[in-house]
């Protein structure tokens, strides 16, 4: 009789083996027509955040992380319908070192088709780059890490001033004012938006007037104003946010007095990159 249980154990073994292989099946598969998008996204956030979780679920891939000083936050969303195909069976956090991910993404051509794959319980993220002509395939596996994520709940706020403007213009303004000042004061009124900086060498300001110029939609500055606002921000951080400029021709600055500024770059039909930055309070410059 003793031999019988052993024999049944033996017979059960192949089944349990099969079950393991099914659960190890790919959990996430996301295919992006142009690798360029993810490459640019990484460029836009990798200096603010070095390690974070990419939270994947059936609606898409999201990321939220604060910088080291906890004064800035980046929130990223890539909706599932921007991928073709997209499949993610359940919530899957992928802890990644962004510096390392960026290294691998640098191996992808801008026009390559990029596929992300991850297994449930696996410890790597697979990246496959296929050339447009389908004559070259690169496969990389990046090790995942356990990251304690600290998520903040960001409420939908109705801001007092929302400024839509050219992203290139915003980048230019941040760069120019950085030359003379550490921080920029942003005043939004019904007439326009004024960026001013003051430093040891002197001071300067740039005013953009609200223009409904429809000739060039990309260049127009539009202001939705409930109430005038005046806020001061660190230029080093704003200049860093403008690394997202290649992602969108437009940028939206949403402001209310004494609350964090929201700088949003919309990705065509795919999602957004949002940066939040705490205002400088109690400083006159």
């Amino acid at each position: 009789m003793d031999a019988l249980p052993n024999a049944s154990d033996f017979f059960f073994f192949p089944y349990s083996h099969l079950t393991t292989t099914t659960t190890l099946d790919t959990m996430l598969e996301a295919r992006l027509q142009q690798a360029k998008l993810l490459k640019s996204l990484l460029e836009a956030i990798k200096e603010l955040v070095t390690e974070c979780n990419f939270d994947c679920n059936d609606s898409g891939i999201a990321l939220q992380a604060m910088d080291n000083s906890h004064v800035a936050l980046v929130a990223l969303l890539l909706r599932s319908d921007g991928f073709d195909p997209y499949r993610c069976d359940r919530n899957l956090p992928l802890g990644l070192n962004l510096t390392n991910l960026n290294k691998i993404l640098k191996c992808a051509g801008n026009d390559d088709i990029l596929t992300l794959k991850a297994d449930d319980g696996g410890d790597t993220l697979s990246l496959v780059f296929e050339s447009k002509d389908n004559d070259k395939i690169c496969e990389y596996d990046l090790k995942l890490m356990d990251i304690d994520s600290e998520h903040l709940g960001i409420p939908d706020t109705s801001y007092d001033a929302i400024v839509h403007m050219s992203s290139a213009e915003f980048q230019r303004i941040c760069r120019d004012l950085s030359q003379i000042s550490e921080s920029v004061k942003i005043d939004a009124t019904k007439d326009g938006i004024k960026f001013s900086g003051e430093g040891e060498v002197g001071n300067g300001s740039i005013t953009l007037k609200q223009n409904a110029n429809v000739d060039n939609e990309d260049e127009a500055t539009r202001i939705e104003l409930q109430q005038s606002v005046s806020l001061t921000f660190s230029l080093k951080y704003l200049a860093n946010f403008t690394k997202a400029t290649p992602l969108s021709t437009r940028v939206t600055l949403s402001m209310s007095n004494d609350v964090p500024l929201l700088v949003e770059y919309k990705l065509d039909n795919l999602g957004y990159v949002r940066y939040y930055l705490a205002p400088k309070i109690g400083e006159e410059n």
């Binding site: 000083s69 004064v71 550490e182 660190s234 080093k236 964090p260 930055l277 705490a278 400088k280 309070i281």
Partner: peptide, 11 residues
């Protein structure tokens, strides 16, 4: 190197 004087944590 950014001067974060006067900036509160986002938390």
């Amino acid at each position: 190197k950014a001067n974060i004087k006067g900036m509160k944590s986002l938390a």
